[in-house]
Design a protein around this nucleic acid. Structure first.
Length: 905
DNA sequence: GCGGCTACGTA
DNA sequence: CGTACGTAGCCGCG
């Protein structure tokens, strides 16, 4: 579009504050959050609004006007202006800044003007558009904007929420108010505007005001003839003429502000998709809004888009035969990058890239010669850059290829440098480090859609998916270079990677392959039994309330509990009242044991417990392999503290606390050819790390004394001899000890222990008095982190916490708790990782057949081969307690048994 | 079908 | 208003 193309110009003018505020009240503040305590409902609603309006109205230019904090000239004229408004809700705070960030990313100009309101900015730009013969569209919920409506100026007024708009044209204004838009301020001056604290003429509403204006032409006419107007309204007018004149002065919009005049300043199409997606990521916005981003906002007009796609398509080789593959490899097959996916339409798809050329491969369509060439290329490359090497390796093996030892896992490198990112998959790395950008992921098609697709459409989809993989793979090269550069500047990351994470990755892959044996018969029996309990609980609960109720639906439960049974309500949650176990147990204890409520709650809790347990068994059943083993995947880049996570199935949260839960552990057994399971766990490793890091003499003495830790600590806190510590004292002290490592407040402590705030505070104070080193350490560690921007573990693993200096109290305090906990949890993670390396290495060196199967944060599970028990026990124990030298001993407890439960100790 | 919410299991 | 996770079911939304 050229600048002279004025006929086609159409500027969209948005009242930023008014619309943000409207969005804030249209959407639940507690339903939209960035995950760090910042509400984003107004930001989301605003973004949704602008996206919708741009998509439907197709403007060529956009500007968003904001009010500045502090007053305007209007406040000097009338000090009650906009008075009496409620204070801005706390959750609204900060959202205007976030909206401005979104607008910047979208390339939308936003404006403020000292001493003037957003309305005046809009009025100025609308007047200019009208003068130039251009169209203007105003989005505002402020009625003052009505005066701006003209033949080429339309007002979009939100009706419901922020996305439903009413079009106000001059005719629509006339129909609604009985006057032309330019006379609206006259009407408003007479009627008054409550929102701005501008009282009008009492007894005069829009009808009367319009009648007068029509009769006398305009407000000056009405005032000139005030004496002639009869009746109560006439007298009222005469009594309030001063108010009317003031109102008219206040509601006149200024059209002469000094704003950028160059039309191009407001032109659309300067947005940056990558930046927008980054901002949306940061705000934790979902996929829907990404999909709806209008291309025109981002300068991706239809033609350009097609051109870009064509250009991209040209860069991606469609690899089906050996010749094309060879052509690709000739551009630099020594260093490859690879991304792969199992596509619903195309099956196994691979994006393969040299540093200069990328190709898309549908493995199922490769001819035999090309298949061999690909396998040879994978074997010959000196470096293959991938995200999540274990996953890629397993996937390739499933498809008949080998990744080999030359894989370079960029996810792991990126994770160590900056833990806590949402994703380290190839597209995330390509975007964040490789300068690539991707459209939102297309939705997974329904079965029915797939069936109806023509082969052409199918091929088109597969080609797109292939091109996407190729683009991701291509961008892994610059991402790898970037990571190399960043790691070079951070020696601590190099050692964490080289000495810990990379060697551990191999160990974790081996553990995944090994799996753990399941006694399928025991599993089936237990499942039947538990399912029987679930059915019984369902039946009994149903009989009590005499109606069909889904006990797994918190929503239905709320109706039954608080309406049908009329029980007292529990703590509030966004959807009403909580039905969690804690609330229900409290409720249960307050009721007569024979009452319907009590009996229902008992059965409900029983149902919850048993369906949870049944869920574990069902889940295990789904993933047992033909050899009766389950193979968890240990995720190395999931937990920001450096802990591992376990998925599909998660074997790190198998029940252990209740007797019935423990029975699930009987399903995990030593497999065929093995004699027993051995579990080894660190005793109180986090408190030992606390002792080490804090150098608190009392705590160190506690561990060196060999006495029970919590007993020792309690005796000091309560000032009694160790044998005078009662169970209540011990458990309270224990709660404080562990709570401290989590940043627990006196409030949280009082709630957990069900004691008064004062008692909780006293307990905390008493603790700190005796263990001052702990208090000093905790305080110091947060302050150090605030200064440096990160926390550190024993091995130097970092976690960056920018929120430590946030102005938002909730975010800041949250970051402080994280800062307290991360060095402790993270150091424990470091230590057990070192232990795993030691155990695995020594086991191999001793040529034992026994093998490590699982890690559960402070515990290792080992499968012991016949005749190796004593050696394994000694080796594991030693590997764990000498993994890292602290100023207190690392104690390891060992248990042996046929099943995981029996191996507890 | 996705994503948010609620609930709950582990360290 | 205590950290770190993963999974399951429900339910509203599109």
């Amino acid at each position: 579009m050229s600048a002279s193309d004025t006929d086609d110009q159409r500027i969209l003018l948005i009242d930023g504050h008014a619309m943000a505020f409207r969005a804030f009240f249209a959407l639940p503040a507690d339903g939209f959050s960035d995950g760090r305590g910042q509400a984003t409902n107004a930001v989301y609603g605003f973004a949704r609004m602008i996206i919708n309006v741009v998509a439907s109205e197709r403007p060529t230019h956009v500007a968003v006007a904001f009010d500045l904090p502090g007053g305007t000239f209007r406040d000097r004229i009338y000090d009650q202006y906009k008075g009496g408004r409620d204070e801005t809700p706390p959750a609204f705070h900060g959202q205007i800044d976030l909206i401005m960030q979104v607008l910047d990313a979208l390339g939308v100009r936003w404006l403020t003007y000292e001493d003037y309101e957003a309305d005046d900015i809009i009025a100025t730009l609308a007047a200019r558009a009208e003068e130039a013969g251009d169209e203007a569209l105003i989005v505002s919920s402020d009625r003052d904007a009505i005066q701006l409506i003209g033949e080429k100026v339309t007002l979009l007024q939100p009706i419901k929420g922020v996305t439903e708009m009413r079009r106000m044209t001059p005719d629509a204004v006339e129909e609604k108010y009985g006057i032309r838009p330019e006379r609206y301020p006259d009407l408003a001056a007479l009627v008054g505007e409550a929102a701005d604290n501008l009282p009008g003429v009492p007894g005069v509403g829009p009808k009367t005001a319009a009648k007068w204006i029509v009769q006398y032409g305009d407000l000056p006419g009405v005032i000139a003839h005030a004496e002639e107007i009869t009746g109560k309204a006439g007298q009222s007018l005469r009594d309030h003429l001063a108010d009317v004149e003031r109102n008219r002065l206040m509601n006149a919009a200024f059209t002469t502000l000094d704003l950028p005049t160059d039309a191009e300043h407001y032109a659309l199409g300067r947005g940056d998709r990558a930046r927008v997606l980054e901002v949306f990521d940061d705000l934790a916005f979902g996929d829907t809004i990404r999909r709806d981003l209008p291309a025109v906002l981002l300068g991706e007009g239809a033609d350009e888009e097609a051109a870009e796609e064509a250009a991209q398509a040209a860069e991606v080789l469609d690899v089906q035969d050996a010749a094309t593959l060879q052509q690709l490899l000739d551009t630099g097959g020594d260093v490859l990058a690879l991304d792969a996916v199992e596509d619903v339409r195309g099956g196994a798809l691979v994006g393969l890239a040299t540093p200069t050329v990328a190709g898309a491969i549908q493995l199922g369509r490769l001819d035999p010669e090309a298949t061999d060439l690909l396998a040879a290329a994978l074997a010959a490359a000196t470096e293959i850059r991938v995200a999540d090497a274990p996953a890629v390796r397993a996937w390739l093996e499933l498809n008949g290829y080998r990744l080999g030892e030359r894989a370079r896992d960029l996810s792991l490198e990126s994770f160590v440098l900056r833990p806590g990112a949402r994703s380290y998959d190839a597209e995330a790395l390509a975007t964040d480090l490789g300068g690539a950008s991707f459209e939102p992921k297309p939705r997974k098609p329904a079965e029915s859609t797939l069936k109806k697709e023509t082969p052409e459409v199918r091929a088109e989809h597969v080609a797109r998916a292939g091109a996407r993989l190729a683009a991701a793979a291509a961008a892994l090269h610059p991402a790898a270079e970037e990571l190399t550069a960043r790691t070079a500047g951070e020696p601590w990351a190099r050692s964490i990677l080289d000495d810990l994470e990379q060697p551990l990755q191999t160990v974790l892959e081996t553990m995944h392959e090994r799996g753990i044996a399941i006694d399928q018969e025991a599993l089936g029996t237990l499942r039947d039994e538990f399912e029987g309990f679930v059915a019984q609980a369902k039946r009994e609960a149903g009989q009590i309330v005499g109606e069909e109720v889904n006990l797994a639906s918190p929503k239905q439960l709320q109706v039954v509990l608080f309406e049908t049974l009329g029980l007292p309500t529990t703590r509030k949650i966004s959807s009403g009242h909580s039905t969690d176990a804690e609330s229900l147990t409290d409720l249960l204890e307050s009721l007569d044991p024979d009452s319907a409520g009590h009996r229902f709650l008992s059965w409900l809790l029983r149902f919850r417990e048993m369906s949870k347990l049944t869920g574990y068994l069902v889940g295990l059943d789904k993933v047992v392999d033909a050899g009766s083993r389950v193979h968890t995947t240990f995720q190395q880049t999931a937990a920001a503290t450096g802990r591992l996570a376990s998925t599909e199935p998660n074997l790190q949260n198998i029940p252990v606390r209740t007797a019935e839960g423990q029975r699930i552990r009987d399903v995990f057994v030593a497999g065929e050819g093995f004699e027993t399971l051995l579990t080894a766990d660190y005793s109180q490793i986090e408190m030992r790390i606390m002792a080490h890091l804090s150098e608190d003499t009392g705590l160190i003495e506690a561990f060196r004394s060999g006495e029970d830790l919590h007993n020792f600590v309690a005796s000091r806190v309560f000032g009694v001899s160790p044998d005078a510590v009662d169970p209540a004292m011990r458990s309270k002290t224990k709660a404080v000890s562990y709570g401290l490592a989590y940043g627990l407040s006196a409030f949280g402590l009082s709630r957990q222990l069900r004691i008064s705030r004062a008692e909780a505070s006293a307990l905390r104070d008493g603790y700190f008095e005796r263990f001052g080193g702990v208090r000093d350490y905790l305080h110091h560690s947060v302050e150090t982190a605030r200064g440096t921007g990160y926390t550190e573990t024993l091995l130097g693993r970092r976690r960056y916490l920018p929120d430590l200096t946030s102005d938002n109290r909730q975010r800041r305090e949250n970051a402080e708790r994280v800062a307290l906990n991360s060095p402790i949890q993270g150091s424990a993670a470091d230590i057990i990782k070192l232990a795993m390396l030691a155990v695995e290495r020594r086991m191999r060196e001793a040529e034992l057949s026994s093998r490590m199967l699982l890690q559960v944060h402070d515990e290792l599970v080992v499968e012991v081969a016949p005749g190796e028990l004593d050696r394994v026990r000694a080796l594991v124990e030693d590997g764990m307690d000498s993994a890292y030298e602290l100023s207190v001993p690392l104690e390891v407890g060992v248990g042996i048994g046929r099943t995981w439960r029996e191996a507890a100790h």
